[in-house]
Design a protein around this nucleic acid. Sequence first.
RNA 1: GGUCCUGUGGUGCAGUUUGGAGUGCACGCCGCCCUGUCAAGGCGGAGGCCGCGGGUUCAAAUCCCGUCAGGACCGCCA
Length: 581
Amino acid sequence: MRTHRAGDVRPVQVGSSVELCGWVASRRDHGGVVFLDLRDTAGIVQVVVDPDAVAGADVHGVRAEYCLRVTGTVRERPEGTVNPDLATGAVEVAAATIEVLNPSEPPPIPIGDRVDADEMLRLRHRYLDLRGERLQRNLRLRATVNSAIRTAMEAQGFVEVETPMLVASTPEGARDFVVPSRLSPGEFYALPQSPQLFKQLLMVGGLDRYYQIARCLRDEDLRADRQFEFMQLDAEMSFADGDDVRAVISDAVKAAAERVTGEPVGEIPVLTYAEAMGRYGSDKPDLRFGLELVDLNHVFGATEFRAFQADSVKGIRWPGQAELGRGRLDALIDRAKQLGAAGLVWVKVRDGATLESPTVKFMSEAEQVGLADATGAEAGDLLLIVAGARRMVDAVLGTIRNDLGRPPVHEGGLHFCWVVDFPLFEDLADDGSPIPAHHPFTAPHPDDVGLLDSARGDELLTVRSQAYDLVCNGWELGSGSVRIHDGALQSRIFELIGIDAETAQARFGFLLDAFRYGAPPHAGFAFGIDRLVGILAGEENIREVIAFPKTQSGADPLTGAPTPVDDRHLRELGIQVRPKK
RNA sequence: GGUCCUGUGGUGCAGUUUGGAGUGCACGCCGCCCUGUCAAGGCGGAGGCCGCGGGUUCAAAUCCCGUCAGGACCGCCA
C-alpha cells in the first residue's frame, strides 16, 4: 500500500513518486491550497494539496485522524518555508491522489507530544493515545531494552526457559492472584509472583544458566512504580556466587542502557547495606546528588545537650541554605517528627564559622568546632541534625535528604549501584522469631552463619545475608541472592523463622526433595523491566511505558476489567459470590 | 484500611477563599471566506445534570455530610 513511511521522507527522495499511509495530525485549509500533516509510526510529513489538481477524496472534507493513503511527488520546500522542527521539514509531498481509508470522529483526547489530557480518558482511549509520540517512543524504547537484554544474556550462555502461569499458591510474600480450577472445584491455582521456585528447580535440572523475561503478578495495591502485572528479567546461575551474578546482570543492564542512550555506563559501584544506610539513609540510595549523612557521634559522645544524648547523632550539610526562612525550617522539623524523630536541630553557618541556632548555647566550644569540621561546613550552609535510635536517625535523614535534593527522573544521568550484604532478617515478629527480609531460601553471609546459633533476640537482626539489590537513581530495580543448597542449613533457617519441618515439607516439599539429589550451588537475580524502561524513558510513572496499564484501583478503563462473570460459569467452578456488605 | 489532592460544554483550565442569573479563557466542533501554512488566519454559530446523593440557606459550582471516580503517598509489595 505504501512505498515509504511518512516520517522517513527525506531530500534524497526529491523528484520521486511516493505512496504514503497514515493519519491526519493536523490540517491547514487555505481554500486554494491545503496542508495536511500526515503522521505514521516514523513521524510526520507535510502533504500539500491543490484541491483542483488532486484526484480522489474531497480534501476540504478531510479531518483530524482520518486514515489516508496519499500518492504524490516529493519536492523541496520553497525557500523560507522549511520547518526545522520536523525531521522531514526540508521537503514536502505534492499530492496527486488522496484516498480516505477510513474517516475518524473527532478524537476525545489530543494526540501528539502534548500530555495534558486526563489520564482516565487516555486509558479509555488508549488506542488513540498510542498514536502519540510519547507512547510510540516509550514502547519502542521498551522493545529495544528487551532485545538488548536477550542478546546480552544469550551471549553469556543463558537459556530462555518459560515457566508456568498457573502455579500453586503459597502463603508467603505478596497476595496471590487466584484462579479457580474447573476440574478440581474448590481448589485454586495462583498466578506466579515470580518464577522463583521454578528457576531453582531448573538449576537442579542442570540447565546451568537460565533466564526469562517473565510476567509476574502480585495482588497488592498499585503505585506509580507498581502494577499488578509487571515484567522481570529473571535469571539463575549454577556454580556461581553473588559476584558472578552481579557481573552478568550488570552486563545486561548496561547493554540495555547503552543501546537506548548511546552513552557508555561505567562500572557499577557496590555499596554494602550498612554503608548505604549510613551514608544515604536508604537501602536504595539515589547517587545523583550529595547531601550525604554525616556521623556526629564522635563530636557529641559526651555532650551536655540532652537532645543529643542518644545512640546516634547524624546530620546533613545543605550548602548555601543558611538564609532559609523560619517557615521552611519549621516545616523541616515537622517533617522529621512526622517521620518518627523526636525533633530536628538546625544550625546556620555564618562568616568565620560562627554557628547560629537556638540550640548552639547547649553545645560546648569543642562540640561546635567538631560539628563544623565533621560536616565540612562553610559560611552560608545549613546543618540539619537528628538524634535518636540508629535505624530511625538514618531513615529520617534519608527521607529528608531525598526531599531536599532528589532531581526529577529525567535529570542527572544514570547512577546505578549494587547494594550487598542485606540483613537476613528485617525484624522480629511478636513471638520473637525473625522475619526473613528476602525469601527463606536466601543464604546467610558465610561470616555470619555462626551467629544463627549464637545470636539472641535483636542480635539476630545483625546477621547478614548474601542478598543484593540493584538500584538506579533511587529506584529499586531488583534483587537477588545466593540460595541455600544445603539441606541442614535450610532446615535451620526454617526452624528460626518459625516454619516447622512439617509445614516446610507441605509448602516447599518439592523443592526440598529436589535439593536431596545433588543440587548445585546457585544464585540468581530478577529486576523490573518496567522500572528500568521508566527511568530510561524519563517517566515518573510506569503506566507511561506499558501499552495497556491499569488504574490505581486495578481497573482497566478500556476493557472495563474487572467484570462479574455468568452464574453458569461460577457454578461450573463451584464458586458462590457473597453479596457485598 | 488510612492521609492528602482533583472532579465545571468534546478537551485543558479560571471561577469555590468571601453563597447572589452557567459568567469567562484557550483548544476542538459546525458553517462561510481564504494559494505557503506548519498549534494557519478571519467572520459567525452550536455545545453545560458544575461527578453523584443528601443537608444548610430566601438563594449553592461555591458552605456541610456522604458517596463514586482519577491521582500522590502510608500500610502492603517474602
